[in-house]
């Protein structure tokens, strides 16, 4: 029937913050058109400054990586592989074993809002908190810019903003548009996404939707479609998860991200051992060599 399936999911108002519902982003590169509207909307809404006009030569990507002044970042991956059953030029006609395949994939990257967040655990000031909707938020007025979250994020998301940009010195990353969410609005990036590649909603709904989408894609010849949601590692899953084609490395995503707190035990053990050894050595030195 005509008009079927044209309803949008990102338009409605919500009260997730008030109801303490865990929310998330599901980003699907198979419908992303690389328009970068999410990047621009994010910058506009959050007053994120530009961070340089540098042409990279890396496909159409001139923003490089997520950082203090790039909270949404659209990746442009060019690969010599086939995408689903796509026919590209005279190549890869008909079957999947085309001689000279090519594909161009866009994926909008964002802070993952980890279940177990490295930055949040590392923050010594309590500037980074978890919100009612399960997102990880940097309170800009509390952060003193110690830079420890920067090395503690397994995804390389958060960064300290350099001078002379406005608000320099603090650590910045995606806020999940917490301010918008409090008012019942959808985050700016999801709101502007024309093809609903970025879907915002309840985490459980999104996970179900994502699983279904992967299945659907498998049926349609996208053999290498998979979900990127590292739930089996110490990160324990991410609230902004992605569908990816192929391996995560190609998208600059760590294959097995770990929250650095798991290293604490062995490190502290070594530290205490060293300290005690040092004391014993010192005491021995004075005891025997005085």
């Amino acid at each position: 029937m005509i008009g079927e399936g044209t309803k949008s999911t990102n338009q409605r108002r919500h009260s997730y913050v008030q109801e303490h519902v865990e929310v998330g982003f599901f980003t699907d590169p198979t419908v992303c058109i690389g328009c970068k509207a999410c990047e621009v909307a994010c910058k506009e809404w959050n007053h994120v400054p530009d961070d340089g006009f540098v042409w990279s030569g890396n496909s159409y990507d001139n923003t490089g990586h997520l950082g203090a002044s790039t909270w949404r970042h659209v990746m442009f991956v060019e690969q010599d592989r086939q995408k689903g059953n796509q026919i590209v030029g005279s190549h890869s006609l008909g079957n999947g074993d085309g001689e000279d395949p090519f594909r161009w994939i866009f994926l909008s990257d964002v802070c993952k809002h980890c279940e177990d967040a490295g930055c949040l655990e590392a923050c010594p000031t309590g500037a980074i908190v978890r919100t009612e909707v399960g997102s990880v938020l940097v309170q800009n007025d509390v952060c003193n810019g110690c830079g420890y979250c920067v090395v503690s994020c397994p995804f390389g998301v958060i960064d300290r903003r350099p001078k002379p940009l406005p608000d320099a010195g603090g650590a910045f990353k995606c806020t999940f548009c917490y301010d918008r969410q409090k008012s019942g609005l959808v985050p700016a990036c999801a709101k502007v996404c024309p093809t609903e590649s970025i879907v915002f909603g309840r985490l459980d709904d999104l996970r179900a939707r994502a699983t279904h989408r992967v299945q659907e894609l498998h049926e349609h010849g996208y053999d290498d479609a998979q979900l990127y949601d590292p739930r089996e590692t110490s990160v324990g899953g991410i609230h902004a998860f992605f569908l990816i084609l192929g391996e995560p490395e190609a998208y600059g995503l760590p294959p097995k991200p770990q929250v650095p707190t798991i290293y604490l035990k062995s490190a502290w053990t070594a530290a205490f051992a060293t300290a005690i050894a040092a004391i014993i050595a010192t005491l021995l030195a004075f005891a025997f060599f005085s």
Binding site: V40, P49, D50, G52, F53, V54, W55, G57, N62, T63
Partner: peptide, 12 residues
């Protein structure tokens, strides 16, 4: 506009 300029900053 800075937000748009940084996305495609040079003629190619």
């Amino acid at each position: 506009l800075s937000h748009l300029s940084e996305l495609q900053p040079e003629m190619f």
